[in-house]
Simulated assay, not measured.
Amino acid sequence: MSRENVRRRVWVALRWGGRVVVGVGALLSLYAVAGLIGGALPVNADRRPPARGVLVFVESNGLHTGIIVPKVAAGVDWRDLARPEHLADPRYGAYSYLSFGWGERAFYLETATWADVKLRTVLAAASGSGDTLVHVDHLPRPLPGDGARPILLGPAEYRRLAAFIRATVADRPQVHRGYGPYDAFYTARGRYSARRTCNTWTGEALAHAGVRVGRWTPFPVTVMWWF
């Protein structure tokens, strides 16, 4: 093969490679813009907080969001699901609050923080997966400054939230140990994708309860800026 042919093939490869990079960048930009717009459009816009009710919290670690609820309130008791013996250290089962989050199995288990994020894990999850988990932390009641945002729900609102979370957990779920001594993962229902992320699930749960939140909340910020 002549040098001219080699140069031509290299130039064609670079040109197509550049187009692919530009195309992927454009898709990511469109996704980001769409997510921010979807997160800014409210559902339950006319909702007014009750004077009294059940205090829950929404939290974020910058990557995943979760909903913190009391173990027992308004006729809802989570102790049959999240049991002390599921924890690496059952003593944490004495805490009175639970944090629930949902996500794709590999993405959840391999990306506890931003430092753990790998492109292959993100792409695999974004392409779609029915292998999902519910993450449950046993916690004390959040204090001011913990980063969790309070939401006061009426009893009926809270029961709707609890029903949504319960429906996400698989029947007779398998239990997997969590990141530390105080948390565990449970097999879940639902398909994870770029359209329905862990943060989308949080927004859907709050919307189902009747809370004012964004219509589509794929990013942590699109959940947290409402509270």
Rank of each mutant, 00 (worst) to 15 (best):
R3P: 00
E4A: 12
R7F: 11
R7E: 11
R15W: 13
G17L: 14
G18N: 03
V21M: 11
L30C: 11
G35W: 04
G35P: 05
L36I: 12
G38F: 12
A40Y: 07
A45G: 06
G53V: 03
V54P: 10
V58C: 01
N61G: 09
G62Q: 07
I67E: 03
K71N: 11
V72W: 08
G75T: 03
R79M: 05
L81I: 12
E85V: 04
E85S: 10
A88P: 00
P90I: 02
R91T: 14
Y92M: 02
F100A: 03
W102G: 02
G103R: 07
A115D: 15
V117N: 12
V117S: 12
T121N: 14
V122T: 12
L123P: 05
A124R: 15
A125H: 00
A125I: 06
A126N: 01
G130H: 11
G130S: 15
T132P: 01
D137F: 13
P142C: 05
P142T: 11
P144F: 08
G145T: 07
D146W: 09
G147P: 01
R149K: 15
A156T: 11
L161W: 00
A162M: 02
A163L: 05
F164A: 10
P173F: 06
G180Y: 12
G180Q: 14
A188G: 08
R189E: 05
R191A: 12
Y192P: 00
Y192N: 02
R195I: 13
C198G: 13
W201H: 05
E204F: 04
L206W: 06
A207H: 03
H208M: 07
H208D: 11
G210V: 01
V213M: 10
T217H: 13
P218L: 09
V221D: 13
